[in-house]
């Protein structure tokens, strides 16, 4: 493994990511919208304008029933203790429903950067030159993975910190607890998301080294969003609760999948097969 080579490739790719407005602007917009504007808006309007409360008395009953049957005891007690339906909704949404939003952000952004990796090189006719250079395919792969991992995680963490500050500034006077500062969120941000991003990147790099065009790579990558949609639905219906333990286990399973994928990458992508499948 040649550290300098990996860094050279990673730096070049990251520079390309951030010099192309078409790539980085959507990434920032998605982060801003999903993980900052939505929670801040819900927090502010939910608390100050009582959007759910009095105007919708008829939905109060089913919501209260939902809260009473909530599987997690701590969350149930906290929700019951909150004074208005608006407060309950805001608290529930911010601590619970925001999890899939952050997962979605990590998936979308890692998909954008990583599906561009090999296919991007191929479309610019530069993959051929790289394969003709004295660099190992392993170093090339690691460089590509690092180049996707750093921007995706940086944006995810930055969005989390900004979200944490803004939301707590709005909600602390009302809830008197610091939101996002608990084991669920710490495990989500610093265990599940990095592993999920890595999983998505390796999978995309593997896919993009196999497919012929950027579009094809994105279509394959898009399939990865489906499990997250599943989580959103199951979360909203209260079907299952993402407890710290569940999150830890999800991370552990993904980690095992990562090891399996890495094995697959090294098996299928030697210089010869990569050259014959990609260069014509």
């Amino acid at each position: 493994m040649n550290k300098n080579l990996i860094l050279t490739i990673a730096r070049k790719d990251m520079k390309a990511t951030f010099s192309s407005k078409k790539v980085w602007v959507p990434m920032i917009i998605v982060a801003l919208l999903l993980c900052i504007v939505v929670p801040a808006g819900i927090a502010y309007f939910g608390i100050h304008f009582d959007i759910v409360g009095n105007s919708a008395k008829d939905i109060e009953k089913p919501i209260n029933a939902f809260i009473e049957n909530f599987p997690n005891e701590d969350m149930r007690n906290t929700l019951i203790a909150l004074p208005t339906l608006g407060y309950k909704f805001v608290y529930f949404f911010l601590t619970f429903m925001m999890i899939p939003f952050f997962l979605m952000l990590a998936i979308i952004n890692s998909m954008v950067t990583s599906s561009n990796s090999f296919v991007g090189e191929k479309e610019r006719n530069t993959l051929e030159t790289l394969l003709f250079a004295p660099i190992s395919i392993k170093d090339l792969f690691i460089g590509k993975v690092v180049a996707s991992l750093i921007p995706t995680l940086s944006i995810s963490f930055a969005a989390f910190i900004i979200n944490l500050i803004i939301v707590n500034v709005i909600t602390y006077p009302h809830f008197e607890v610091i939101l996002y500062f608990n084991s669920t969120w710490i495990i989500l941000m610093f265990w599940v998301i990095p592993i999920l991003v890595l999983f998505n990147i390796i999978l995309n790099v593997l896919i993009s080294a196999k497919v012929k065009s950027f579009q094809e790579a994105q279509q394959f990558g898009g399939i990865l969003v489906l499990p997250i949609v599943g989580i959103v639905i199951s979360q909203a219906s209260g079907m299952f609760f993402l407890s710290p333990l569940t999150l830890f286990l999800i991370g552990a399973v993904l980690l095992i999948c990562n090891l399996f994928l890495i094995k697959l990458v090294t098996k299928f992508n030697n210089r010869n097969t990569l050259f014959q499948s990609q260069i014509h």
């Binding site: 300098n4 080579l5 050279t8 490739i9 070049k12 520079k15 390309a16 010099s19 192309s20 610019r124 006719n125 530069t126 051929e128 030159t129 790289l130 003709f132 250079a133 004295p134 660099i135």
Partner: peptide, 27 residues
């Protein structure tokens, strides 16, 4: 050294940056 049929350079980088990148790739 190899010059492939298509020029195989990064179009979004300057001539200098291209040469710096490839010189680092070749160590």
């Amino acid at each position: 050294g190899i010059v492939t049929e298509s020029a195989s350079l990064y179009h979004d980088m300057t001539a200098w940056d291209n040469l710096v990148f490839f010189s680092k790739i070749y160590g």
